[in-house]
């Protein structure tokens, strides 16, 4: 099996899907000839031709609308937003149009689009590039939201996203693009959307995370196991919509304590939703309040301090200490 970085796994998944289904199209800014600003689509235009892998003009609203038009006519568009922060330019096309097409038409039209976008902090790129805006997408019925934490999952989840009959937002954390390698099968495989993964079993406390924060959580959990002998169970959500509450609740029933980790600002995001659902579904199993470990409710900061602004393993440890003491 080949060792791949996450970006290679993504290219590999796109390549496979373009080869499998001629209805799959790939477009966005700089994705064609140059292969994308992060090289995610490297070589694909050459292999599949300009009619299937193409550069668009610089206008996200138009790109999003184009994707919807193609999708309702039976294509499987995979469109790239060069940085997640530029989702605002095309937010109506995604949340107001594509995500509601099925509902509005009473199921007569659907828009099975895959939106890909790099995002995430810790790579010294400032606001609008590093922001974790996934909370905005969560309150969009009709849209699924996927955030892989490793190369293997990225491939399986991206293939599922492309084959899914609803629009899916697939978010690629920039810090994970090239920072780890993993065995990734060359052949296609899928990971179901809405199925979390227990990446570190434990019995004392549940830690829920997604994206790059999964690695922060595991690091903190390992450290804690060594120094304190307390075993945290780390759940990698893989998709934040739909949410695999079953796995979370199961875990909480075992550990009776939970913390939720996210890179995004604290208020009203994925973590807040998870906390609410834990209390709705497992309050009598809890021995204390569920805590959130997140960024503060301020704008993404300058590079020099982003590592402190984002939840660090240290802050996770402090959160864990607190949740154990409650």
């Amino acid at each position: 099996m080949a060792q791949m970085t996450m970006i290679q796994a993504i290219t590999n998944a796109l390549d496979g899907e373009l080869g499998r289904d001629e209805k799959v199209l790939l477009f966005g800014e700089d994705v064609g000839q140059s292969g994308g600003v992060f090289r995610a689509t490297d070589g694909l235009q050459k292999k599949y031709g300009e009619h299937r892998v193409f550069d668009t003009p610089l206008a996200e609203s138009g790109i999003g609308g184009l994707a919807t038009g193609l999708a309702i006519q039976g294509f499987r568009p995979v469109m790239e937003i060069q940085f997640f922060g530029f989702v605002f330019e095309t937010f109506d096309e995604i949340a107001g149009q594509a995500a509601r097409m099925r509902f509005r038409s009473g199921g007569r039209y659907t828009a099975p689009i895959t939106y890909r976008a790099p995002f995430g902090g810790g790579v010294k790129t400032p606001e609008m590039h590093a922001d974790s805006l996934e909370g905005l997408l969560l309150q969009t019925p009709g849209l699924k939201v996927v955030i892989p934490s490793n190369p293997y999952d990225a491939k399986g989840l991206l293939i599922s996203a492309i084959r899914d009959d609803d629009p899916v937002f697939f978010l690629e954390h920039m810090k994970l693009y090239r920072s780890l390698r993993q065995e990734v099968p060359e052949d296609a495989y899928t990971i179901p959307l809405g199925q979390a993964n227990i990446v570190r079993p434990g019995k004392d406390v549940t830690v829920v995370a997604y994206g790059a924060m999964v690695h922060t959580a595991v690091k903190a959990a390992d450290e804690w196991s060594k120094t304190r002998g307390i075993e945290a169970e780390v759940i990698d959500l893989r998709t934040i919509s739909p949410l695999d509450m079953e796995t979370i609740v199961q875990s909480v029933k075992k550990t009776h304590r939970a913390v939720v980790l996210q890179e995004a600002q604290k208020s009203s995001g994925a973590a807040a939703e998870i906390v609410a659902q834990i209390t709705e579904n497992a309050i009598y199993h809890l021995e204390g309040p569920v805590l959130r470990i997140t960024a503060p409710d301020t704008v993404y900061p300058f590079g020099m301090i982003e590592d402190e602004w984002l939840p660090t393993p240290d802050r996770v440890l402090r959160g864990l200490e607190k949740v154990m003491s409650l």
Partner: peptide
């Protein structure tokens, strides 16, 4: 922007330059 944005994202009230941002 006191280092909050990338270079080239100009802005200065005293110089009558509007603060810009990354989305073109």
């Amino acid at each position: 922007s006191g280092g909050r944005q990338m270079p080239g994202h100009f802005g200065s009230r005293k110089n009558r330059i509007l603060t810009g941002s990354s989305p073109v």
